[in-house]
Write a protein that binds this DNA or RNA. Structure first.
Length: 669
DNA sequence: ATAGGGTTAG
């Protein structure tokens, strides 16, 4: 039996085992175990036979004993059969046998190794039954993988269970959780975890501190970023190139170019040299600022430091050019890059986008197909880019075709895909396609996100279907996802435009009980409508509410108020507001200027015209065509005849010859 | 052993 088993011949080994029945008391459970043991040694054992034999033993005897289970469990681990390893452990539990720590530990290690996180969680819970805990390397890897897969709450569960039992040993266990929290906008929770671990006596390292820096940057908490940077240093933790790169990118992305460049000097001074990633961040920003000379200089510096550009550098450059509208330049550079070596899919995606931008979506598609024939592997971004290209060219039916015919990866089309088509269908008012996409999304169990909802709100508003739209927005307000303020403003604007200020105001007031906060624009929309409907009471109420919310009136608020006053002929009150704006450091727009100018002419308040024109010249204000139209009309209709000097000034302004400093002084005088 | 950069939808 043993020699059959060891050669992998299960059926002969099994019939030999059965022959033993001729001997009284045979075969024993140890004979069965021996068969399985040697069969497993054969290296070509199959789980089916083992499981069948096990169920046979359970039904007909001899009943399995501890060593049966241990043999089977070790065997399944040897075969790399995770599912049946778990099955055996469950069987042991049901039969009141205790699997060894080592075998469960090995099972978890295998689950982690093959990346089967769901089974990993099952094994982890099995271990908890016996009060076993994962060994440190397996645990750290497991938590890291859970975090990377977006299963942060599972990672937190594993972590907190073990923390309670004091089975967490180092920062490497929870740093991935800190990062995962910070990457998903939960820096405050990360902060709490940070302090909890500190209290427990753990010493954070630069990676832990950097996670928080990343989180604060991501959430735009600038003060926290710099406080934290000081804090880590006062705790004896030196920021490294990663920490600095994150801050530099944050400063760039928030328009603080000089500060970012200062930071780069600072890190160099502190002996922390920028690396390729840092340079890529800088390259991208220089591109956005169209500083091509600085780019070539920087590339030389990189070259001197032995850093050669990679796919990210090329994507930063080409993506940057594309963003500032230099599609031709981007294309040229891309073709040059392609002819000089291989780059990854992101760079090709930028190329597809360039083509689509120039309304050559069809060419992008044929290039994609051609490249796929020679081994190019597109991703969802490639497909979505081309699909959006067709949408942009209003080729929505072909975009739909692509949805069904692209060779999507295992995950299939994603939210971006559906939203691209949905937004186009909404823009074109194609309700059949809207319904089709919504149906498809429901079928794929894909939730509408803020993009989809915003498209739908716009569509429903423009088709006048406010009741449906209100249902949608109100369900968003009280559930997730919380609508962004732009979506709300879109609805408020459309309601007001359709003379439904009352409804708009009701929605606005309901915001108090929700997560969404109105912004200055929301107030401006309502104030504008209230003025138009001569509802002075509401205007006052809104202004007061705005102040209590800590929101300051902006150029648009003043614009509405001034225009309202002008229409009522209250010129001096309007001029007062104009001055108030200037005092508060707000630059009035030319539209407001024209409104005032027009009203003043209508009322014949010629001295006020001079005051306004003076303000215009002193502030270096550029008149536009409307301004010149108003002035020309005033001069040509003769109403200026009685004021020849005023007329002369107007002529001067109309001739647009007042830009020179001397002229400005003269006119102001 | 853990961490930072580029490309898609409102």
């Amino acid at each position: 039996m043993q020699s059959y088993a060891i050669s992998g011949d299960f059926s002969n080994a099994f019939s030999t085992l059965n022959l033993m029945k001729n001997i009284d008391g045979k075969p024993t459970v140890y004979d069965c175990n021996a068969l399985m043991y040697f069969y497993l040694k054969s290296k070509n054992a199959c789980w089916q036979e083992l499981v069948e034999m096990y169920t046979g033993m359970k039904r007909f005897g001899p009943p399995p004993v501890a060593s049966t289970f241990n043999t089977l469990l070790n065997g399944m681990l040897l075969l790399g059969d995770l599912k049946h390893a778990i099955f055996i452990v469950e069987e042991m539990y049901r039969n009141h046998f205790v699997p060894s720590f080592t075998s469960l530990s090995k099972t978890l290690k295998m689950a982690v190794k093959v990346g089967n996180l769901l089974d990993g969680l099952v094994v982890f819970e099995l271990m908890l039954r016996y009060d076993y805990h994962p060994i440190e390397p397996t645990l750290n890897k497991f938590i890291l993988m859970l975090c990377d897969a977006g299963m942060v709450s599972d990672a937190c569960f594993v972590f907190s269970v073990l923390l309670r039992k004091s089975y967490v040993y180092s920062v490497y266990c929870y740093n991935p959780i800190l990062w995962a929290l910070c990457k998903t906008g939960r820096s405050y929770t990360a902060l709490q975890l940070f302090y909890l671990m500190k209290k427990k006596g753990f010493v954070h390292n630069v990676c832990s501190y950097t996670a928080l820096i990343y989180g604060f940057c991501r959430e735009g908490l600038q003060d926290n970023v710099f406080q934290w940077l000081d804090f880590m240093q006062s705790n004896g933790c030196k920021p490294n190139v990663i920490t600095y790169t994150i801050i530099v990118k944050f400063l760039f992305d928030n328009g603080k170019f000089e500060e970012a460049m200062d930071f780069i000097s600072r890190m160099e001074r502190e002996g922390c040299n920028p690396d390729l990633l840092t340079y890529n961040v800088i390259l991208r920003e220089l591109c956005h600022r169209d500083r091509l000379d600085d780019i070539s200089e920087l590339i030389q510096v990189m070259d001197q430091k032995g850093l050669s550009p990679d796919s990210y550098s090329y994507a930063a450059l080409c993506g940057g050019l594309l963003k500032i509208g230099k599609v031709g330049d981007a294309c040229e550079l891309l073709l040059d890059i392609f002819s000089n070596g291989t780059v990854d899919v992101a760079v090709y995606n930028i190329y597809f986008r360039c083509l689509c931008q120039e309304n050559k979506s069809r060419e992008a598609l044929s290039q994609l197909k051609r490249m796929m024939k020679v081994g190019f592997k597109p991703n969802n971004v490639s497909y979505n880019t081309i699909l959006s290209g067709f949408c942009k060219e209003k080729n929505i039916n072909e975009a739909l075709e692509l949805l069904y015919h692209f060779e999507w990866d295992v995950n299939g089309p994603d939210a971006v895909t559906f939203n691209a088509i949905l937004s186009t269908a909404c823009r074109l008012g194609n309700s059949a396609i809207i319904q089709r996409i919504l149906y498809h999304m429901r079928y794929e169990d894909m939730k509408l996100n803020i993009f989809s909802l915003t498209c739908l709100v716009r569509y429903l508003c423009s088709s006048g279907n406010f009741s449906e739209c209100l249902k949608l927005v109100e369900s968003m307000m009280y559930n997730s996802p919380t609508p962004p303020v732009v979506t709300l403003n879109m609805l408020l604007h459309n309601l007001c435009k359709n003379r439904l200020l009352g409804t708009a105001y009701r929605i606005f007031q309901n915001l108090r009980n929700t997560q969404c906060l109105p912004d200055v624009t929301s107030y401006n929309i309502l104030i504008h409508a209230s003025i138009r409907e001569h509802n002075h009471l509401l205007v006052g109420q809104l202004l007061g509410e705005m102040k209590r919310q800590g929101l300051k009136p902006d150029v648009f608020t003043y614009g509405s108020l001034i225009s309202g006053l002008c229409k009522e002929g209250k010129i001096s009150a309007a001029l007062q507001l104009w001055n108030q704006m200037l005092e508060r450091g707000l630059i009035p727009s030319v539209v407001i200027f024209n409104t005032l100018l027009h009203a003043i002419f209508q009322r014949g308040k010629f001295w006020d015209i001079l005051l306004l024109l003076k303000a215009m010249v002193v502030q270096g204000f550029q008149p536009d065509e409307v301004t010149l139209g108003i002035l020309s009309q005033a001069v040509s209709n003769g109403s200026m005849k009685r004021f020849p000097k005023v007329a002369k000034v107007l002529d001067w302004v109309i001739s647009n010859d007042f830009q020179k400093e001397t002229d400005q002084k003269t006119i102001a005088g």
